[in-house]
Amino acid sequence: MSIQHFRVALIPFFAAFCLPVFAHPETLVKVKDAEDQLGARVGYIELDLNSGKILESFRPEERFPMMSTFKVLLCGAVLSRVDAGQEQLGRRIHYSQNDLVEYSPVTEKHLTDGMTVRELCSAAITMSDNTAANLLLTTIGGPKELTAFLHNMGDHVTRLDRWEPELNEAIPNDERDTTMPAAMATTLRKLLTGELLTLASRQQLIDWMEADKVAGPLLRSALPAGWFIADKSGAGERGSRGIIAALGPDGKPSRIVVIYTTGSQATMDERNRQIAEIGASLIKHW
Rank of each mutant, 00 (worst) to 15 (best):
A245T: 05
D207A: 15
D174M: 04
V82W: 07
P105D: 04
L247C: 07
K252C: 12
V31D: 01
S201D: 02
D36Y: 12
G234E: 01
P60I: 12
S104T: 06
E46G: 05
S254E: 13
A15M: 15
G251L: 09
G226N: 12
D48E: 12
K30E: 07
R255M: 05
E166F: 13
R81P: 00
T178I: 04
D231R: 03
R176N: 08
S104K: 02
E87I: 11
M209C: 06
I3E: 06
N173V: 10
L219W: 04
I243Q: 03
Q4I: 12
L38H: 07
A211N: 12
T27K: 05
N134M: 04
T198Y: 07
G142N: 07
L150T: 08
S240E: 09
G234V: 00
A280F: 10
E277S: 10
E35R: 03
A170F: 11
M180I: 12
L73P: 09
R189F: 12
T131E: 03
G216L: 08
D33K: 15
Y260G: 00
P249N: 08
R159L: 05
Q86V: 14
G142W: 01
H151T: 12
D113L: 08
A280D: 14
E175G: 10
T107M: 05
P249A: 08
I259W: 03
H94G: 10
E237F: 09
W286T: 01
P25I: 09
S281D: 08
D155H: 01
T138R: 15
A148I: 13
S80Q: 12
E61H: 14
H110V: 05
L247I: 11
K213D: 02
T69Y: 03
K109N: 12
E87M: 12
T158I: 02
A215C: 04
A222F: 08
A40T: 08
G154Q: 09
V257S: 03
H151A: 14
D113N: 13
G242F: 00
D177N: 04
G141C: 05
H156Y: 15
V106Y: 08
A276R: 13
N173S: 13
S240L: 02
H156G: 15
R91A: 07
I278A: 02
P105I: 07
Q204F: 07
S96R: 12
T267L: 10
P105M: 06
V29M: 11
H285C: 11
V258A: 09
A276V: 10
M115G: 02
V29G: 15
M184H: 02
T179Q: 00
A132P: 00
G52K: 06
N98G: 10
L199N: 14
I244K: 00
R202N: 06
V101E: 10
P65C: 04
N134R: 04
S281F: 15
S57M: 13
S104L: 01
T193N: 15
G114S: 05
M1L: 07
W286C: 01
A235V: 05
L150N: 05
M184A: 07
L146R: 00
R41T: 10
R7M: 05
G43D: 00
A211C: 15
D83M: 03
K252N: 12
A77W: 06
I206W: 13
L137C: 06
E62N: 07
I45L: 13
R118S: 15
S233W: 02
P224I: 03
R255H: 05
S264G: 10
R92G: 06
L197Q: 05
D129S: 01
M67E: 04
A15Q: 08
V42T: 06
L160N: 07
G251F: 08
K252G: 10
D174T: 05
L73S: 08
D48W: 03
E195R: 11
A16P: 09
L167S: 06
A124P: 00
G226V: 04
S233C: 02
N98L: 14
L137H: 03
Y95G: 03
K109G: 14
G76Q: 01
P217A: 14
H110D: 05
M268I: 10
G236M: 02
R118Q: 13
C18F: 06
A266V: 13
V72I: 09
D113Q: 13
Q203Y: 09
I275N: 00
L19W: 15
A183L: 07
D212N: 08
G114T: 04
I125L: 12
A15I: 14
N98A: 15
I278Y: 01
Q265E: 15
L167Y: 02
H156D: 14
I275G: 01
M180L: 09
L136F: 00
R159N: 07
R238H: 14
V117H: 03
E277A: 11
S128H: 00
L196A: 15
S2A: 09
E46V: 08
A84S: 12
A148P: 07
D269T: 11
D174R: 03
M268D: 06
G76L: 04
W163A: 10
G154T: 05
K252P: 05
E145R: 14
F22P: 05
R81M: 08
N152K: 13
G263A: 08
K144P: 10
G251D: 11
N130L: 02
E145P: 09
R159M: 07
H24L: 10
W227L: 01
A84P: 03
M153E: 08
P20Y: 03
M1V: 05
I259D: 00
R81D: 05
G234F: 01
A215Y: 04
A246M: 15
F64D: 00
D207I: 10
V78Q: 03
D212Q: 07
G279C: 09
Y95V: 08
S51K: 09
G85L: 08
T126I: 09
L205D: 00
A77S: 10
E102C: 07
T139P: 03
G248M: 01
F17A: 10
V31H: 01
A34Y: 06
A34V: 11
Q4F: 10
L205K: 00
I171P: 07
A235E: 03
L188S: 06
G43E: 00
T139H: 10
I206N: 08
N50G: 14
L197I: 08
V72A: 08
E175D: 14
E119D: 13
E169G: 14
L55K: 08
A246Y: 11
P224W: 03
G279R: 01
A9H: 12
I3T: 11
S57V: 10
T179N: 00
L136D: 00
I125C: 08
L111N: 06
Q203F: 08
I54R: 10
G236K: 01
T193E: 14
A230I: 07
S254T: 14
A222T: 14
S96T: 12
F70R: 02
T112Y: 15
P181C: 08
L89C: 05
Q274D: 04
F14K: 02
I3W: 07
E119N: 08
D48Y: 04
R159K: 11
N152V: 10
Q37H: 12
T193P: 01
F14S: 08
T186C: 15
E46Q: 10
W163F: 14
A84Y: 10
E62T: 12
K144C: 12
N272F: 02
G43L: 00
E145V: 12
I125D: 00
N173K: 13
A9T: 15
L282S: 06
G248K: 02
V82T: 09
V117F: 04
V214D: 02
P249I: 06
F228W: 05
L19T: 15
E175W: 13
P224M: 04
R118T: 14
A148S: 15
L146H: 02
L137R: 01
K284M: 10
S201V: 03
A211K: 13
I278L: 08
R92M: 10
Q274W: 15
A222K: 15
R81K: 13
A9N: 09
S57Y: 11
E270A: 12
G248E: 01
W227E: 00
R63N: 07
L19H: 14
H110T: 05
D155N: 06
Y95L: 07
M180G: 11
L150C: 11
V257C: 07
D269V: 12
I244H: 01
L247P: 00
S57D: 09
A200E: 14
A211T: 10
G85Y: 08
V8F: 14
L205V: 06
L219G: 03
G90C: 09
L218P: 03
L146N: 02
R118V: 10
L191Y: 07
M127L: 12
D83H: 04
L120T: 04
G242K: 00
